[in-house]
Design a protein around this nucleic acid. Structure first.
Lengths: 217, 217
DNA sequence: GGCCCACTGTCAATCGTTTGATTGGGAATT
DNA sequence: AATTCCCAATCAAACGATTGACAGTGGGCC
């Protein structure tokens, strides 16, 4: 037993039922330990959620920043950033869903810090879009709305992507870069022959098998 | 006191803290009644959630279907459908957020019916996109992903739109239609001089004042 | 002998729900 | 018009169950 295993059990249950609806006895049972033993690994139920969210957001920021460093051209930076975003979201579906949905479950003690990380991550997109617009590679009626729309559609990948499904993750990444380019009226030929793809890392908190409820299609 | 007022109080609390984290005493206090009185209006806490979700999804389907009937041209139908979707989401932010987030809170008794309504709504988009692609007004690498992306970015409006903010709702509707057209490589001149806009209705469950937590920007 | 890890058992608090009693005003009957 | 009746609306109180949390205990392992 270790924190990672506990996080996995927590993420699975939090994603399925929500933080508030998940009891610590349930968490313990899923992790194979007694509910009291849980307090040897984490100080409280909320602290467990915080550890998951912190790991998630930090990795998103790290991966996104790494993507930005691969080029100085805004259009290519955006491609890398979206590739990172979609790749991470597809690889860590449940964890990123928990990090998105359960922000409201945090107490006033922890929320500002987590919201700060989220804001920091979103600012990566804002910066790239602003620079790209300034140098003229992007064109939109409203840059703020374009940013929100692009981020949101990437985040949505967590809701429907299935490994071993019709599409490989790298295809999804590529396609979302294309769609974002269209939204921004960016020149898609800028991408030819350039490797902007970022290989996503799987978090310790992400359950291996996606035993999520599956209404077989 | 009536069901609508109760729904409003419920939606506000469910949107802020989630269904599971909201107690019926809290619900009663917010509605100005005793927790026991609540059971004269609804059979259970879950039934209260179901009534909200049912009203919400039914109105989304009704409004979307109405938009489709205003034209037989897929590109214009899509414009109306997106306008309806964004308009509804912006007008009923909290209600649609609850309907989206709290699907998992439903018991096995109620979830299939609600999920069925959601599927029915999504099929409106699928049909229009499929027809538009068939007649050649839309062009995408992957139609399914485009549909998911377009729907998701519209749904995201519930997360950031603020009445009396920088943008009017009709501007947001227009802009999202434009962005969807770009994603689908549709000809924007098809829209000139055509009134595809759908006026959104406010649900009884939607709280009037958006007294949501506001970290003043 | 120490040091972890895991257990049992228990705590007050809160959960969703039900009960029983009380109100007030409109409908029905006299 | 006066009286009786009814029923929706409301309440305080309490139900058993469950919650998050923790103190205390013991069994392995070094």
């Amino acid at each position: 037993m270790n924190l990672g295993k506990l996080q996995q059990a927590a993420v699975l249950l939090f994603a399925q039922q929500g933080f508030a609806a998940t009891g610590i006895r349930e968490l313990g049972a899923a992790a194979g330990i007694n509910s009291a033993t849980l307090y040897h690994y984490v100080g409280s139920k909320e602290e467990l959620l915080v550890s998951v969210m912190k790991d998630c957001l930090n990795e998103m920021i790290r991966s996104g920043s790494e993507a930005l460093r691969k080029s100085s051209e805004p259009a290519l930076q955006l491609a890398g950033l979206i590739s990172s975003h979609v790749g991470f979201t597809g690889t860590n579906q449940l964890t990123s869903r928990v990090a998105e949905y359960e922000m409201r479950a945090l107490s006033e003690t922890n929320r500002p810090a987590m919201q700060g990380l989220r804001d920091e991550y979103e600012s990566l997109f804002a910066q790239v879009l602003e620079r790209g617009t300034r140098v003229g590679v992007f064109s939109t009626d409203d840059l703020t709305m374009a940013r929100l729309a692009i981020m949101e559609m990437g985040t949505g990948v967590a809701h429907w992507f299935r490994p071993n499904g019709r599409l490989e993750l790298h295809e999804v990444q590529q396609n979302f870069v294309n769609m974002a380019y269209r939204v921004l009226a960016a020149d898609p030929t800028l991408l030819t022959g350039v490797d902007f793809m970022v290989a996503p890392r799987q978090l310790a908190s992400e359950p291996d098998s996606l035993s999520a409820p599956e209404t077989v299609p």
